[in-house]
Amino acid sequence: MSVHAFPDTRGDHEIAAVYEEHFDLLVGIAVGRFRISHADAETLAQEVFLDFLVNAARVHDRRAWLVGAIYNASRDHLRRARRIEPLPDDGPDPADPRYARVCEQWPAELAAREAFARLTPRCQLALRLRYIEGHTIPSIAKLLDTTKRYAAKLVTRCLGLAHRRYCGREAS
């Protein structure tokens, strides 16, 4: 983590100084070289700094690292922007169908998250791999370094536990 690169209380001043010294330069590169809007350029520069915070311990040349980061981030931003098609001005503007039943959906979603958070880490991993990432049981078994049979049992048991917690049939 970055903060090892900025030890003790001087670290606060140092990281603030690194930010102040480079922020305008990074925004300038994104705007000047890549024709990215100023608002998007500022967002990219801030995200680059967040990643710098996490990686700072292994950064030897801060300026080179930050400049390299904004070049890469700007190129990637432009690649993504090219894939986005604007909606026609005169087209229909229906609400996102996902929000049609939002009053019932959000409380249910919050309850599901709460139930999930109360599971053990092993259960969270197994259920996330199975139902969010879409892994098969053999793949989960491989990732958790266990047998297919145990992985199947684990997913079933954890799903049952989550369901019981969601329905409030278990105290903790």
Binding site: S2, V3, F6, G11, D12, H13, I15, A16, A17, Y19, E20, F23, F49, L50, L53
Partner: peptide
Amino acid sequence: AATFAHFA
């Protein structure tokens, strides 16, 4: 800058 220092 202050926010980043705070985060660090």
